[in-house]
Design a binder for these strands. Sequence first.
RNA 1: GCACCGUUCGUCUAGGGGUUAGGACACCGCUCUUUCACAGUGGUAACACGGGUUCAAUUCCCGUACGGUGUACCA
Length: 483
Amino acid sequence: MSVRVRFAPSPTGFLHIGSLRTALYNYLFAKHHGGTCILRIEDTDRTRFVEGAIEEQISSLAWAGVTFDEGPHVGGNHGPYTQSERFDLYREYGMKLVGNGTAYYAFDTSEELDAMRLRQQNAGIAPKYDRSSMRNQYTLGELETARLLEEGAMHVIRLKVPLQQDIRFNDLIRGEVVVNGREIDDQILLKSDGFPTYHLANVVDDHLMEITHVIRAEEWLPSTPKHIILYQAFGWEPPKFAHVPLLLNPDRSKMSKRHGDVMVRDFAAKGFFPEALVNFVALCGWNPGTDNEFFSMQELIDSFGLDRVNKAGAVFDYQKLNWMNGEYLKKRNVHDLARELHPKLLERGYPYVSESYVADVIELVRERVAFLADISEFADYLFGDTLAPLTPEAQEVLAKVPTLKTAIETFKTGLSLETLASQDAFKGLAQSAADAAGVKQGALMKPLRLVLTHREVGADLFRTLQLIGVERCVQRFDAFLAG
RNA sequence: GCACCGUUCGUCUAGGGGUUAGGACACCGCUCUUUCACAGUGGUAACACGGGUUCAAUUCCCGUACGGUGUACCA
């Protein structure tokens, strides 16, 4: 039987980084086995629906390179793939359960349920639907139930959990999990508005869409026994389950906003390469068993397996992500990078430069930054003529050479295409400037950099001068001399 | 509270009955570089605790502690 997996997000907001990883693992698992990766939209909660969320999630996924073989946007033979378009189905299947005695009617109001929970809380017992004391099919009797139904009384359908029975399943990542039936709540399957809850819709769809492996986040582990009971109630073979560990905040709670960016679009906006993000996130909770840390999507597909997914949650290390992005920045084709950065420079207000000039700058400075976009800031003196203000520290450095203006004069007059043509010629010029000022050549390099770039650190000075060019160097010398 | 899941350097992890417990990020040295970075090289740093099983436990078992998740007419 060929592998069929699904990623099933709710359209309640932008795509979360944790969701990206779950989707990625599904995708990798499917592709590794030559299977099918399905997107299914779980929008059964109308109150939480966010306009545009589906489109945003799909495009964030696509940005990262995760695509689907079936889904609302691409079609397929198991559709529709949006649960709100399948409502009749859930009602039909829910009623089947009522028919075979594995689900039942309940008429409690939310006030009554709240009161029940309060009682339980005060009594120190676990909050759980009390089938024997609440208003339902069993306590009311068949006659009263039928009457209420006929009256059109508000009601829900609840799962009749087999008490006193151990529910067990074998999680592909965690091994055997056993939960006793008395711990499991009589979950609502169909709400009073007739809409299904996640649990019903999820199980029905996974079965109808012939899902073979349910790969989802660990937060679902506690409700999996309910799903197993549902499969039993329907008489269906359950799929295999794999609950992947959570992505964590530094304090080890479930990863969330307020500790940093968590939406995929935030990472994209910050300038992360999708390949770097995917590479990094794949390694949060999974490892190939080798020392290799760099993987293209295809390499991930080739080496991915659920057997090497970890059990424990992984703290999301932004620092290491930055490092990884820098590694991708160093490896990327410089012309591709230039093409990407080029238009952004104009947006930032720099005067026009050629794309090949941008490529030269990138080549020179990229190993000093982690993001492509950082280059426009880091090397502003190569793109524009408005230099950053000199820091007090920089002023001090300049003041340390009293004869600096003499040296700069010498530089200015000696600077030409020829002196910038070779390292040796440049050194000769530097030496004569040093002689004129009566200082060692080394003492001149930092002030020279400062005068031309207003920065204390930067790439190789000779190459930097070449890129600034004679004309702009002279302008900057003049500005300094006049100051 | 109850249920479930988890626990190897600060972080991501490898390993697994006998290892100097390996790698990566971060951090700290050194080399290179008249800067910074890169690169290279070295270093600090971990098996939560207690019992068992065993000749031998970080590894297997049981407890405890700690942490996380769940406990909705949310997903």
